[in-house]
Write a protein that binds this DNA or RNA. Structure first.
Lengths: 155, 155
DNA sequence: TATTGTTATACTCTATAACTATA
DNA sequence: TATAGTTATAGAGTATAACAATA
């Protein structure tokens, strides 16, 4: 091997490869910024959901973030143990989720970090390019979901 | 909750959230298409690498795909057990990796599936938009890697 | 001494099945 | 009968440390 090997174009040009690389790089930076808060991206997302929808039913919140309900239980447990979130029994089988004051305070700090990280990562893009990127990603996401749903039907 | 809850804009507008959604959707479709071949995206990538660089040293191939060497060993083991890949001892401590005829045959089938999947997912994008998307993702990836490296240095 | 490859290990994330209890 | 929540479990994927053998 004279020269350094490169990922072949047939792979490097694939949308899935490009998306995965970008996502890994962005999440790696996010996790480093958020290490001081001990918050993962999904945890930050739940805090934001609970701020927007105080008292939301646990099952709804989990769906919104793409969780299987079986996995959402220990996920909420961890935040409740840290007193960032509380469950309140709404009826015999339903939990409402609420931020605690500590949860709101942590969310405020997390927002500042997340906004700073967002600015850093998108600094090279004009507002117009950033908007365009979001639209292109949305179109890819929608097309991929249609495809996956069609494949699931025919399987 | 009268209306259906939505992921708050402060999350939905983040580049990381959008990338993750897109990547999950694209990989889900890929995995459904590839279930018949029992091939994951990373396995397909390695087959393509070995086709482009026959005899590449195991450590180089692993680096290229972002593997920790400790994880790459069982990854190669699985493909070798299926007779898609062979290790050849190059010197006392170095393995070269090669496709077997069965590996080449599977790669041919995988390419057809991958190309079809790629066309489906990007069908809504003009060639110009597809190119632009790749460029924007590349810029995001580079910026995120610079940021993560800087954060790691200051930590 | 640095590199290659391996084993052992652990943690996160995700997936399914089965169960309780409640509406 | 369907829904909400939980437990148990298993499989990927990824991370680090430690080691043997070799360059």
């Amino acid at each position: 091997m004279q020269d350094d090997p490169r990922v072949p174009a047939e792979i490097a040009d694939k949308i899935g490869y490009q998306l995965r690389n970008a996502q890994l790089a962005v999440f790696a930076g996010f996790n480093e910024q958020f290490a001081a808060l001990d918050l993962r991206p999904a945890q930050f997302s739940l805090l934001a959901v609970l701020d927007a929808y105080p008292g939301i039913v646990q099952a709804r919140a989990g769906e919104l973030l793409g969780f299987q309900k079986a996995n959402f239980t220990p996920f909420v447990d961890a935040l409740e143990r840290r007193k960032l979130v509380v469950r309140v029994r709404l009826d015999g089988r339903t939990n409402g989720l609420l931020l605690t004051p500590a949860g709101r305070a942590l969310l405020r700090r997390a927002r500042r970090l997340a906004d700073a990280h967002e600015r850093t990562v998108t600094a090279g893009l004009s507002p117009r390019d950033r908007r365009l990127l979001g639209e292109l990603l949305e179109r890819i996401t929608a097309a991929a979901r249609r495809d996956a749903a069609a494949a699931a039907r025919s399987a």
